[in-house]
């Protein structure tokens, strides 16, 4: 067996938290990018929000599954 256990983990990866996140300092850039998706999906979203979401959610019930 080729056991590739490292006794000294490489330091290539920064161990700290991600440098940015959607709720952090990066937020404005994320918002701008999200705008593009939002505009593309706007019609579908509007239709969904105009319907009866509670009835839709009840209708989605599935019987079991793997």
């Amino acid at each position: 067996m080729k056991l590739h256990e490292r006794h000294n983990e490489p330091s290539a990866h920064v161990q700290g938290p991600p440098s940015g996140n959607p709720d952090g300092g990066n937020l404005e850039r994320v918002r701008q990018a999200g705008e593009h998706f939002f505009q593309a999906a706007d019609d579908a979203i509007h239709r969904a929000l105009s319907g009866n979401s509670l009835a839709f959610l009840q209708a989605t019930r599935q019987e079991g599954g793997q």
Binding site: N26, V30, G34, F37, F38
Partner: peptide
Amino acid sequence: AGDLDAVAGRLDWVLKLQILRR
């Protein structure tokens, strides 16, 4: 790097999250 907008066109959970947040 936390650059979620760069992977929104790659990863479903990111794309969906961005749509819902908007």
